[in-house]
């Protein structure tokens, strides 16, 4: 049994779009997309039950290795980072092509995704990757179990809850309510450095650089507008007087 987990390295703190390249500025500090910690955690939980191998897969700049290492420190066994000048500026079409090519090589029984990338808020990538892998896909999983070569997911929709079953191999995107991700232990952090970690280029995956990255993108950012006006919003530090301050504010707004 092999489980692949797709994780993204995202900017930390206030992200910004570079006005010249019109791309997300990825030069600052970054970390593991916190929604992906839920996917890593779920893989580790399944591993405990089924003795699976857990492989983390990420596409991103060289420093995405930090996020990959965090997933290894949590307990994943092995990592695959696709890092190449040519992938910068990839949109959904490009990103899904790159990840699908890497996942094709891994031939995992189960591919897990997080609920959304906190920088892009797409919450869509899994469906594009599953389409390329030609595998069943289930998203928004709040409960996941495996038995007899198939999976069972409970998920929320606009109308209530659905229970969905699908044969493996398959792709599942988990919601952030599925578990509480663990923090890496000191031992895990030390051990992560020794775990196998491979970095691949587009050429290694047999992909044409013209089809992905900025060159292959089918969408584009045309213009950046100024941020919408913020109104008269205030923020206060919650010291001993916070409750009184809130009451005063509500009274001022004639809400009490």
């Amino acid at each position: 049994m092999k489980i692949a987990v797709c994780v993204k390295h995202v900017p930390e703190g206030a992200a910004r779009i570079d006005p010249t390249s019109k791309r997300l500025d990825r030069s600052g500090e970054g970390g593991l997309n916190h929604f992906d910690a839920n996917a890593v955690e779920e893989a580790l939980r399944l591993k405990a039950d089924s003795d699976a191998e857990v492989v983390v897969v990420s596409m991103g700049p060289a420093r995405a290795a930090d996020s990959v290492r965090k997933a290894l420190a949590m307990g994943a066994d092995r990592a695959l980072l696709i890092s190449d000048e040519g992938v910068a500026g990839s949109d959904l079409v490009g990103t899904s092509a790159v990840l699908a090519a890497a996942l094709e090589r891994e031939a995992a029984d189960l591919v897990l995704f997080g609920q959304q990338a906190s920088d892009a808020d797409g919450a869509v990538l899994w469906a594009a990757v599953a389409e390329r892998l030609r595998r069943p896909v289930v998203s928004q999983a709040m409960e996941l179990s495996l038995a007899d070569g198939s999976l069972r997911v409970k998920r929320q929709t606009e109308f209530g809850y659905d229970v969905i079953e699908a044969p493996l191999p398959a792709v599942v995107a988990v919601s952030d309510a599925i578990n509480e991700p663990r923090y890496p232990s000191l031992k895990g952090i030390m051990g992560a450095k020794k775990k196998p970690s491979e970095t691949l280029s587009l050429a290694d995956l047999g992909l044409d650089a013209a089809a992905v990255g900025e060159a292959g993108a089918k969408t584009e950012v045309l213009a950046l507008g100024s941020p919408p006006p913020r109104g008269d919003s205030r923020t206060i530090e919650g010291d001993g007087n916070a409750a009184q301050a809130i009451l005063d504010f509500l009274a001022e707004k004639r809400l009490v």
Partner: peptide, 9 residues
């Protein structure tokens, strides 16, 4: 925090 105009190629 920012409003973006997006297009298709």
């Amino acid at each position: 925090s920012v409003s973006v105009d997006v297009g298709w190629r």
